[in-house]
Amino acid sequence: MDGERIVIVEGITDKKKLNKVLDEEIEIICTHGTLGIERMEEMILDHNLDDRTVYILVDEDDSGYKLRKQLTEELPHAEHIYIDKAFREVAATPEPELARALLSRHFNVKSIYLI
């Protein structure tokens, strides 16, 4: 994969949280929950996901597990970013914790969150 990186999250609050922590321009797309086959195919085609480096960052709850499984089946090359189960939701994860998770995948994060 030498395409541009892209992150898949569940909702708009997750996207806002990532944008707050990231110190680089990365395309972030929201699934708004699990996807039907048509929506999944549209997303893959619209964002050229088969030829890009894809990261999956979803909540650590039942709907997040279901979505992660679904995305993994369709995008086997995707890399996974995990948050601590204690926070359950990406949007509820403290910025320093999220920054560490993103750093582990070589994203640039704002130094203010590196405590």
Rank of each mutant, 00 (worst) to 15 (best):
R39Q: 14
V54M: 07
D50W: 11
E74C: 04
V58H: 03
D46M: 04
I115L: 10
E10C: 09
E10H: 11
Y113N: 06
E60H: 08
E42N: 09
A78C: 06
M43N: 06
E89S: 11
D84E: 15
V54E: 05
G3R: 07
K15S: 14
L102G: 04
V7H: 01
E97V: 06
R39T: 13
I26S: 05
E27I: 14
K16Y: 10
E89Y: 03
R5T: 09
E42L: 12
I81R: 01
L49H: 00
A86R: 10
G11W: 09
M1Y: 11
T53Y: 01
R100N: 12
S111C: 14
R5W: 14
G3F: 13
V58A: 11
V9M: 14
T53F: 00
E27A: 11
L102A: 02
A92P: 07
L98D: 02
V54G: 01
K69F: 12
A86W: 10
A78G: 06
F87W: 09
R5V: 13
S104E: 15
E95Q: 06
Q70M: 06
D62G: 08
S111N: 13
G64Q: 11
E38Q: 15
K69R: 08
E97L: 06
L22M: 15
A99H: 00
K17T: 07
E4A: 11
Y113V: 08
V9Y: 03
D84R: 11
D2Q: 06
L114W: 00
S104Q: 14
Y82N: 12
M40T: 07
G64V: 04
E73F: 13
L45W: 11
D2F: 11
T31H: 09
I115C: 11
I44A: 02
E74V: 07
